[in-house]
Design a protein around this nucleic acid. Structure first.
Lengths: 333, 333
DNA sequence: CTGAAAGCGCTAACAT
DNA sequence: ATGTTAGCGCTTTCAG
């Protein structure tokens, strides 16, 4: 492990001259600077970021906190966030809470102790009360992919207009002529999607009966199980709105397994637009979330906050949009 | 930011007494220890890991280097590795090289500067020459999911018997009665799978003709494109072996799109057994890699290396196994 | 333009 | 049992 001090000795100069030469900060005679740089290369010098972090009180690292990696939605976000912050010389550490709030606290404590510069916290990965505590301690935090009515005012966040997303799903199904529609939703996390959906149905004069609303927990399996229940009803829905793609995927499996056709017998619409959705059989109609946009806004908001940009928007709402593929059609006549 | 020094002042003791009380290392009067602990809690003390790392010359952090997160195979590995090392109080930082060797070097330099304690490097994420350089510098490294003939001897690695995996795929297809089988493979990364496959075919007296071997790059899209080409041949194969599940997935899409049936007209077998494979239509027959096992072995090997366990196995080969689902069947008569 | 010195917060001998 | 001291490697005044 060669340090600036080693270089200084060999070069016959002071420690700080080496530091200046290496970082290009102070002012150093061009000749000696070249000599030092040359030496650094020869001796295989590597700056010690641990030491630098300690003395500068920052780590150029942000944390991305998410509830799981099993849902491909999150890896997609990770890629996007990482690509952006890397351009600003920040590193990303991802922190997987496994939907476990206690574990989340534990891990967060570790991150704070490591002097992570800022945090992007994805929805359902942490309890809001904990987050508020962290914010009070002065940690730069931006919430991402939370329901916008869920967080306290004044907290930086970029989220999706989930209410609108629910409306879009309903609109699409209504336009196709569906009147008997079931919903699979992960309450309370996805409450807004449900509300938006219901509002649109109500406006069309077709309130959603409670027995047509099934609970899921955002996984494939839960979508599958919920649909099984739905299909046991005496009167079947002609369409199913699953509040995320993975559950829609599970719903599709249950429907097909029962020998029914998608979309001829039952239409299915999801929400997310993860990569595989385009390749299901049939390809999934879904309300897409602009993931790259989400990641970009969150990253930039956080970076701004870290660097003390007081005059940035504190929050931002991105619009979902409909992607029509082949899992939805007119109801059977 | 309250430090041990702050606590020391308030408690009216020395810095190191506080340190001892907090870490439980030295020997401290039980009464004063309780007082200090109490104070630490009240004052909201958080150990500063940056400082600790600097003084201890270690960070309790390992890096998991992988080529992408788009292939769900990797998130699955991440979850497994992370779960294991967390139990040993290590943190994982994932490093995504995006299949870009130059970027990989850049990021690796950063990680080294951060004093990451050890590295798990997944196949195709880095150039072997670079890795050898790092190992010479004394960095604890274990290779994971590389072709075992690919790495220099003496390098710690846990990999899959990919040759055997190729054989298993061929065996299965041969047993079903297939004689005209195409292969989609990402050379050179997947060379061993191909060789194993070919060896088995040869043993059965049915060498694989070159025009039945298409190149892919491990993505869904490449599997799709390769299959398009295959299906343009005058004489169609009755089965396709794709050297990973994502390509098999693409192959399936191409076949179905052409109006052919899987498996009645063309059987498809993949390799990996990622989570979604069980839910494709039809569910994908595949040669499964024991991902949890892979992650566990790699993590433990690395941890052993970090802690100077000289007497550990330097490498380990795990066995793949066949998972028969519904994408393979007898060839059409 | 250069170097000495203090400090970041913690650990680890070594005295007391 | 407790305190003193010297680092860890780097940054950052501030004199020379």
């Amino acid at each position: 492990m060669v340090t600036i001090y080693d270089i200084a000795k060999v070069a016959g100069v002071g420690k700080s001259t080496v530091a200046n030469a290496l970082t290009g900060k102070g002012t150093v005679n061009e000749a000696t600077r070249q000599r030092i740089l040359q030496l650094a290369r020869e001796m295989g010098y590597r700056p010690n970021l641990v030491a630098r972090n300690l003395s500068q009180h920052k780590t150029l690292t942000i944390a991305l906190i998410l509830p799981t990696l099993v849902n491909p939605f999150y890896p997609e976000i990770v890629e996007a966030v990482e690509n952006i912050v890397r351009q600003h010389d920040y590193q990303t550490v991802i922190c997987n809470t496994h939907y476990d709030f206690a574990l989340a606290r534990e891990q967060m404590d570790r991150l704070i102790s490591r002097w992570i510069d800022g945090y992007i916290i994805m929805g359902t990965s942490m309890e809001l009360n904990d987050i508020i505590r962290y914010i009070k301690q002065g940690l730069p935090i931006v919430l991402c992919d939370w329901q916008e009515n869920e967080s306290a005012p004044g907290i930086a966040q970029v989220s999706v207009d989930f209410y609108r997303a629910g409306q879009i799903a309903a609109e699409h199904l209504l336009e196709l002529g569906h009147r008997s529609i079931a919903v699979i939703v992960d309450k309370p996390w996805q409450a807004l999607r449900l509300e938006g959906f219901q509002s649109m149905m109500l406006a069309a004069g077709i309130p959603v009966p409670v027995e047509m609303i099934e609970a899921g927990n955002s996984t494939f399996e839960s979508g599958y199980a919920a649909t099984k229940k739905l299909l046991a009803h005496p009167v079947l829905p002609t369409a199913i709105f699953a509040a995320n793609d993975l559950m829609a995927f599970g719903a599709m499996e249950a429907v097909l397994e029962k020998g029914l056709r998608v979309p001829q017998d039952i239409s299915i619409i999801g929400l997310d637009d993860i990569a595989i959705s385009a390749h299901l059989r049939p390809p999934l109609t879904t309300v897409a979330l602009p993931k790259t946009r989400l990641a970009k806004e969150a990253a930039e908001l956080l970076l701004g906050q870290i660097n003390g940009n007081k005059d940035m928007q504190v929050s931002c709402l991105v619009e979902p949009y409909l992607v029509v593929r082949q899992s939805t059609a007119h109801p059977p006549t």
